[in-house]
Amino acid sequence: MSDNRTLLTDMAAGLFADLSSKPFAEAWPQVAEAGFSTLLVPEDAGGFGGDWGDVLAVLRLAGLNALAAPLAEPVIAHWLLAGAGIAAPEGLISIAAPGQLVPYGRHAAAVVHVESGTLSLYHADACTFDEGLSPAGEPWDAVSFTAAAAATAACDVDLLALGAFARVAQASGALEAAFTLAIDHVNTRVQFGRALAKFQAVQQAMAEFSEEAAAVDASAAACAAALDYGDASFEIAAAKLRMGLAVDRAVPIAHRMHGAIGFTIEYALNHLTRRLMGWRSEFGGDAFWAERLGRRVAGLGGHGLWREMAARTDRLVG
């Protein structure tokens, strides 16, 4: 881990822990103030000059602390704008992937949209939002563009995939936090005269939980490495789908281990699990990514699948 990354994660860990139960209105100004939005913008363009490994580390911490503020969205938007040579407007910039809801759209000063090879920057006054909420109560707003873009540029980035990567990264943190809550709970809650953790059925379920968290951790890190290489189309499809499976398997265990206390709005678990439930569908759900990945693999042929996977890790070494 680079020294820069350690500094970055130390700062993010401290700040996000402070903001953990704060609403958007309190959390976002501090996230913005800390300068995370320009994480991927090169240093000579006034940014932090980070890589996708840094993005993963920070998003993981956001997920771990159930941060109620956008983070991936402005990071991706600022990176895209810098790459296109378009000056970023002040304030929150969110992203609109084709056919997707805009996270925190109603609070955004501008929205970056990429479709069919063109990036468009829309200011808020060119957007109309049909407001909605995620299962965790975060703004998920459907956008229609009602006026011309303030700027456009050619762009071959798959915005949907970047959004999907962000949710995998956040999910890796949220799963760890839910797992930690469950560990603490089963170690302290006593039934039948023993801590729950002493029961083999509980141990086995917790082991399964850990396996799912592990799978998301590993796949998120593999995606970041591929993004830093410059092409993560295969990896993100696989990782987003795997994250959906992990949510499917791990969230029920998290709640089962907690009993009724985990079902209350007071207790921290729901802030994590409701987010996980939402992220599973956001930026392409299981069926979408399964079909996209499956079609790609079918085109590779039976042995072609392995050859492609091997080549995609070998290229990281060369």
Binding site: L241, R242, D286, A298
Partner: peptide, 19 residues
């Protein structure tokens, strides 16, 4: 449906390979 099945199996296999 078959594409989805292949995608699903690939996603699990790819993840296990990384691990």
């Amino acid at each position: 449906p078959t594409a989805q099945l292949i995608g699903r199996l690939t996603a699990e296999m790819w993840t296990l390979r990384q691990m």
